[in-house]
């Protein structure tokens, strides 16, 4: 069943990638693509429309599709990691203050420096600062480290949210505020090959590392003492897992801004269907998260002629699914 589920997800993702490549406001047909490909291979001079087609396919649509998959996968996988780390199936990347820190960093970049590269750098730094602050707060109460880390995450998130609110208040309502709002609500409209080329590889490496370590994550979900008795250096492994999950989360924020709910709902639903074994759940989360975000983005960009922030739709879709899954989990024997 579990292996089958992974294969089903791979097939669905592949099919969605193919579909998403051809649909959108500028639609293409498979024949057109084959014709352009043949022309390009034989060295025939391409018509302006074919040039435009190539540009659209490789410079706009493909980076957007790859970004959707990477962002969805990283949010979902990091959600799975946090849920296991904190022994709580209802936590998400937001819990450690990662998203709040990254949002705040982006707000500083947009409002104070009005610089796109600085916005990206500050966003990444904000995510790291968010988790560092959570860990710092947790160290103030070493008696109950897991609980203290959760409270530390809450404090850290509140702190960064307060600063972001202040920046929203002082932002130029015509120039900066719409840009900031767009960033805070997530979008894939800024996906581009150049950004993908330097963020994609570390993000993909982090994802692969986490996906291949489901066995160790299972042990860590047994609690510190049992994990150590079972032969795992739990403190070190916990740090590695949390740092890697935070890294891929922050990188995803640079690619797409803040996209909520994916990191909570996708692992939760998949755990209900496939069970908690992280050897299956982690690859399924990566595939499922990528698939979910790609489908959502493809629908949103195809239906409306203007770009809508993606978090609106992820929330609208995820909320009923999440409520149903909670009810289902409660009701099942």
């Amino acid at each position: 069943m579990n292996k089958k589920a992974i294969w089903i997800l791979i097939v669905l993702l592949t099919a969605t990638v193919i579909l998403a490549s051809f649909i959108g406001r500028y639609s293409m047909t498979v024949n057109e693509l084959l014709e352009v490909g043949r022309g390009w291979l034989t060295g025939r001079e391409l018509s302006p429309r074919e040039d435009q087609f190539l540009f659209l396919f490789f410079q706009v649509r493909m980076p957007r599709i790859v970004t959707a998959i990477l962002v969805g996968a990283s949010l979902s996988v990091s959600g799975t990691i946090y849920q296991n780390m904190f022994l709580n199936p209802l936590v998400s990347p937001g819990v450690l203050g990662v998203l709040a820190g990254a949002s705040c960093g982006a707000a500083v970049g947009i409002v104070i420096f009005s610089s796109w590269p600085l916005t990206q750098i500050f966003s990444f730094a904000g995510g790291i600062l968010g988790v560092s602050l959570s860990i710092f707060f947790s160290k103030l109460y070493p008696k109950a480290p897991i609980l203290a880390l959760l409270v530390g995450g809450l404090v850290s998130a509140s702190f960064f949210t307060a600063i972001t609110s202040l920046l929203k208040y002082v932002a130029d309502p015509n120039q900066q505020l719409p840009q900031l709002i767009f960033w805070l609500m997530g979008t894939l409209s800024r996906a581009e090959n150049e950004k993908l080329s330097w963020i994609g590889p570390p993000l993909a490496l982090g994802l692969i590392f986490l996906v291949l370590n489901g066995k160790v994550l299972n042990i860590l979900s047994q609690g510190d003492e049992e994990a150590r008795a079972l032969g795992i250096e739990s403190a070190r492994m916990r740090l590695i897992f949390i740092s890697t999950a935070t890294l891929i989360c922050s990188l995803s924020v640079i690619l797409s801004g803040i996209i909520n709910w994916v990191g909570l709902v996708i692992p939760h639903i998949l755990r209900l269907i496939l069970g908690p074994n992280n050897q299956t759940l982690l690859p399924a989360s990566a595939l499922g998260g990528g698939l979910f975000l790609l489908i959502t983005d493809t629908i949103v960009r195809s239906v409306w002629t203007v770009e809508f922030p993606l978090s609106i739709f992820t929330a609208l879709i995820c909320l009923p699914i999440f409520s149903f899954s909670l009810w289902y989990d409660w009701k099942r024997p």
Partner: peptide, 14 residues
């Protein structure tokens, strides 16, 4: 090898 007093798991492993 260690057998703890009880294991109150959160996740329903088989």
């Amino acid at each position: 090898a260690y057998v703890p007093q009880a294991h109150n798991g959160i996740f329903n492993y088989t």
